[in-house]
C-alpha cells in the first residue's frame, strides 16, 4: 500500500506515464464500448448524434477530462515547490497531463457531429 501511495505522488516517475495511460484507457473504453453497444443495442435510424451511446461517451469523456485537469494542476503546484529531479518530473508530468486532456477533448470532438454505429 505504501509503495502504491508513493507511485501516486506528483514527483514519482510514474506520473510521466499516468496521463497518457489514462488517455489510452479512455480510448480503449470508448472504442470497445462503441463496438459492444452497437452490437447489443444499435440506436434507431434517423436519431442522428443524439443517442444514449453518444451521451455515455460524453459523460465518460467529461469525467476523464476532470481527472486529468486535476492531476495537471496538482503536478504544476508540486513542481513549483520542489527542486531538481522532483521539480522536473512534476512539471513534465503536468505537461503530459495537459496534453492527455487535450487529446481526450480533441479525439472526443467528432462525436458531437457524428451518429454512432455507421
Amino acid at each position: 500500500m505504501k509503495s502504491l501511495r508513493r507511485w501516486w505522488g506528483p514527483s514519482h516517475p510514474a506520473q510521466l506515464l499516468l496521463g497518457l495511460t489514462l488517455w489510452s484507457l479512455w480510448f480503449v473504453a470508448i472504442y470497445a464500448g462503441l463496438s459492444v453497444a452497437c452490437a447489443l443495442a444499435p440506436p434507431g435510424a434517423g436519431q442522428g448524434a443524439l443517442t444514449a451511446i453518444n451521451g455515455g461517451i460524453a459523460l465518460l469523456t467529461l469525467a476523464t477530462l476532470a481527472l486529468l485537469a486535476w492531476l495537471a494542476w496538482r503536478g504544476l503546484c508540486a513542481g513549483r515547490q520542489a527542486a531538481g529531479g522532483g521539480r522536473f518530473i512534476a512539471l513534465v508530468g503536468a505537461g503530459l497531463h495537459v496534453y492527455a486532456a487535450a487529446g481526450v477533448a480533441f479525439v472526443a470532438w467528432p462525436l458531437v457531429a457524428l451518429p454512432p454505429c455507421l
Binding site: 435510424a45 434517423g46 480533441f106 470532438w109 467528432p110 457531429a113 457524428l114 455507421l118
Partner: peptide
C-alpha cells in the same frame, strides 16, 4: 492546422457515406 483540417475533413467524409434515410 489539425483543427482546421478536421473541420473540413469530417463533414467531407460524412457526405461519402451511405447514410440511412
Amino acid at each position: 492546422s489539425i483543427l482546421v483540417l478536421l473541420a473540413f475533413g469530417v463533414p467531407a467524409g460524412q457526405r461519402l457515406l451511405p447514410l440511412p434515410g
